[in-house]
Simulated assay, not measured.
Amino acid sequence: MKNTLLLWSAWFLASALWAQSQPKQYVLIEHFTNSRCIICASRNPAFYNLISQYPKDIHHLAVHPPVPYSNCAFYQYNTAHNSKRADVYGINGTPRVALNGVLIPAGNPLLPQATLEAALGKTSPVAIQVKEGGAAPTKTAEVTVRVFGNVPAGSYKLFVAVAESTVNYNAPNGETKHYDVFHAMLTDIDGQDITLPAPGGSVSFNFAYTHVQPNGWTSNFDSLYVLAFIQEAPSKAILNSGTRFDPVFTQVAEAANARAVRWSPNPATDYASAFLPGERIRSVEVFTLSGQRCSAEFTVEADLVRLSIERLPPGAYVARITTDSGPYVGRIMRW
């Protein structure tokens, strides 16, 4: 009887969680900088330090417009695409940052931490999955957009960018490491019109990119990756973004197979632990009962998952553990 109740509890929690939750909305940060800009060199380090604190929540793309110097080596690599992306936001000076399609006022710091944190923990009705293939000098990418909820009315465009994760280059402004350097758009430079299907549907697109070694700096093919995002044209709002590094969001397909997991202590005030012998833990996510994703850290030691809940407001939560064999769900009370 006890096991039956446990199974029914797991089914109820899984059904409620998957029915109400939506994919995580990643924070897309478009960073407009210039390799000859002294102000960029002075403000970028603090900015990079800030976003490095949220590696699982942020997608960063460094665009190099021709201001204040058109002889910036990164701008010269693809003048048309760098200029066009900067023109979307009317960039007339660097450094600047656009967060999820909203241009942040110029200042120091470049991006206030409070502004960034206010954008975290959101959800989106769509998830974007990127698969990459190919061999030097050609990279291929399959971008799949899956819809899990009602998409706000609007005119949407898909952008698929190629970026280089780290470039080692002694720039004239003194910077030596450059992150997520924009190479090119694989879609049209103005984006590709996309009609999003009804909830439960998906649409896929295929792209190819031939890598060309630039002049003045060295590019590494193995450091290239694809960043896809959907932007609402008039408002510039970002619906969501995705890379191959992101975990795949699943919903209905896993709900029926979700198993119960016990958290202890429960209720808890700071930490709760779950024991999953023989499982390989891929991720741990926490949701409110209304389906809102919460920010919570976890550690894994052998078969034990330790979840930090001390920063969560008191209340009831559902925690989902994704393993190689499938998902587990369980309720946690935070005192």
Rank of each mutant, 00 (worst) to 15 (best):
E285I: 00
G326W: 08
F205L: 02
P199Y: 09
P314D: 07
A198M: 13
P199N: 11
A198F: 05
S21C: 10
N240P: 14
W335I: 01
A41M: 04
S308D: 15
T250Y: 06
E117T: 14
I309L: 12
R96M: 13
P152L: 07
V167L: 03
N215Q: 15
R85M: 12
T210C: 04
T195P: 02
S283D: 15
N34I: 13
H60D: 11
Q20G: 04
A319S: 14
A114T: 14
I104D: 02
E132K: 11
T4G: 06
Y169Q: 08
Y209V: 08
I230N: 07
L103V: 13
N220L: 04
R262D: 14
C40V: 12
K2A: 09
S52F: 00
C37R: 10
A136Q: 14
Q20V: 00
F47Q: 08
Y89L: 03
P109M: 00
K24M: 03
V181I: 06
K84G: 03
V147P: 10
V102S: 14
F159N: 13
N266A: 02
S264Y: 08
A255Y: 09
G93F: 13
L276Q: 09
A260V: 00
A86G: 15
P105I: 13
T187C: 07
I309G: 12
R331N: 08
T138H: 02
L158I: 07
L304D: 07
A171D: 09
P125H: 11
R334E: 05
L110H: 03
K56A: 14
P172M: 03
A319I: 12
V151K: 01
A106Y: 12
P45L: 09
Q192I: 00
P277Y: 03
I238A: 07
R331T: 07
Y89S: 03
Y179C: 05
S70H: 14
Y271R: 15
G200K: 12
V160K: 10
L224C: 09
Y179R: 10
G191S: 10
I39P: 15
Y169A: 05
I309A: 08
C72A: 15
A184E: 13
Q25L: 02
A118M: 08
L239F: 06
L289H: 04
P234S: 06
T323E: 02
K84Y: 06
F182Q: 11
G315P: 11
N78Y: 04
P265G: 08
T187E: 06
F275C: 01
Q76C: 05
G242W: 07
A208M: 05
S21P: 01
S223Q: 15
P109Q: 02
L289I: 04
D87R: 06
T140E: 08
P277W: 02
A253G: 14
